[in-house]
Design a protein around this nucleic acid. Structure first.
Length: 111
DNA sequence: ATCCTGACTGTTC
DNA sequence: AGAACAGCCAGGA
């Protein structure tokens, strides 16, 4: 990985690496576990830099309290993410939405 | 130190 | 349910 990666970014990547297969986590959720309360954007930035070194496809945005949705800007990348998730048995809606009550990651410990 | 940026979010319309 | 807005955070110029 890039030697210039900050400790914070490495921590974020470490959290993402813990998201189990067949499950998805939101940007903010990852940020919070990594120690950045409202840093959803920070998670996004870290992911962008990390590339495919982590299960990037398991990180999504929030659409409503119980639903998440693919937040990739590039339509092609979004399609790829959807494919990867479906391959893990995660049901992705036509609009790229996902039921968090079913596939949302629940980190154990504190919340 | 200051300003701008963005794979974010909760609140309002 | 979906679009517009206004905060929020850390990194980079």
């Amino acid at each position: 990985m890039p030697k210039s990666a900050s400790a914070l970014q490495r921590r974020i990547l470490a959290v993402i690496a813990r998201v189990p297969r067949g499950r998805v986590a939101t940007y903010s959720q990852v940020a919070e576990v990594a120690g950045i309360p409202r840093g959803g954007r920070v998670t996004a930035a870290a992911l962008r830099r990390a590339g495919k070194q982590v299960p990037w496809h398991r990180i999504i945005g929030v659409s409503s309290p119980s639903r998440g949705r693919i937040a990739i800007l590039d339509p092609v990348g979004a399609a790829i993410q959807r494919g990867l998730l479906e391959k893990e048995a995660v049901i992705v809606d036509e609009r790229g939405q996902i039921d968090l009550t079913r596939f949302g990651w629940r980190p154990r410990g504190r919340v």
